[in-house]
Amino acid sequence: DVKYLQNEQITGELKETHDVIKVGNHVTDLKAIGDVTTSNADITLKARKVLLDKGTYISKGSKLKIN
């Protein structure tokens, strides 16, 4: 079970639970290439493995929690 976060603007609350979570501007060919950015986001990622790759931008005022 792999979740890809790519080419997304995240606002508000986001909770994802998967075996593997990959975040970045080109972590899969299944979606359009693009950065992952946040704006006043509260993000919780729960996974055995989390990859934060290039193109991941967590803005001031956003929270990122990895379990």
Rank of each mutant, 00 (worst) to 15 (best):
E13G: 14
L64A: 04
Q9G: 11
N7A: 03
V27Q: 01
L5W: 12
T37H: 04
I43A: 02
L64C: 03
K3P: 10
S59Y: 03
L45R: 01
Y4L: 06
Y57C: 04
I58Y: 03
T44D: 07
K46W: 10
D35F: 06
N40I: 00
V36G: 04
D53S: 11
E16H: 11
Q9K: 15
I33K: 15
E8R: 13
E16A: 14
I33V: 09
G34M: 01
D1H: 11
Q9Y: 14
D19F: 11
E8G: 07
Q6E: 09
T37E: 07
V50R: 08
K15P: 09
N7M: 02
D19P: 13
L14V: 09
L30A: 08
S39M: 08
N40A: 05
A41S: 02
G24F: 01
R48P: 08
G24D: 00
K63C: 00
K65E: 12
H26D: 10
Y57F: 09
K65I: 08
D1I: 05
T56L: 13
T28F: 05
Y57R: 08
D19A: 15
K15M: 13
T28S: 11
L45Y: 05
H26L: 07
D35K: 06
K65T: 13
V36W: 09
K65Q: 12
E13H: 14
V23Q: 01
A41Q: 02
N7D: 05
I58F: 08
T44I: 10
L52V: 03
A41Y: 01
T17V: 10
N67F: 14
N7Q: 03
L5T: 12
A47G: 07
K15G: 09
T11I: 10
H18P: 03
I21D: 02
S39N: 13
V23K: 05
L14I: 06
K60H: 09
L52N: 04
D1P: 09
L64Q: 05
G12S: 10
N7C: 00
D19E: 15
G24R: 01
N40V: 01
K15L: 14
T28C: 07
T56S: 13
D29F: 02
G55R: 03
T44P: 07
G12Y: 12
G34H: 00
G24C: 00
D29H: 07
T11N: 14
K65S: 10
K46L: 10
K22L: 14
D42I: 12
L51D: 12
D42Q: 13
T11S: 14
A41M: 03
A41F: 01
Q6D: 04
L51Y: 15
A41E: 00
V50Q: 04
V27N: 05
T17E: 12
V27P: 02
R48S: 15
E16T: 12
D42H: 13
L14K: 09
G34W: 00
T17L: 07
N40G: 07
K22C: 10
K22F: 09
I58K: 04
I10P: 06
E13I: 15
I66K: 06
V20R: 15
K54L: 05
K54C: 03
I10Y: 06
T11D: 10
H18D: 13
E13S: 15
E8I: 09
T38C: 00
K60F: 08
E13R: 15
L45D: 02
G34A: 00
K49P: 08
K49R: 15
N40S: 06
S39P: 03
L51W: 12
T17Q: 13
T28Y: 04
E16I: 14
L51G: 10
N25I: 07
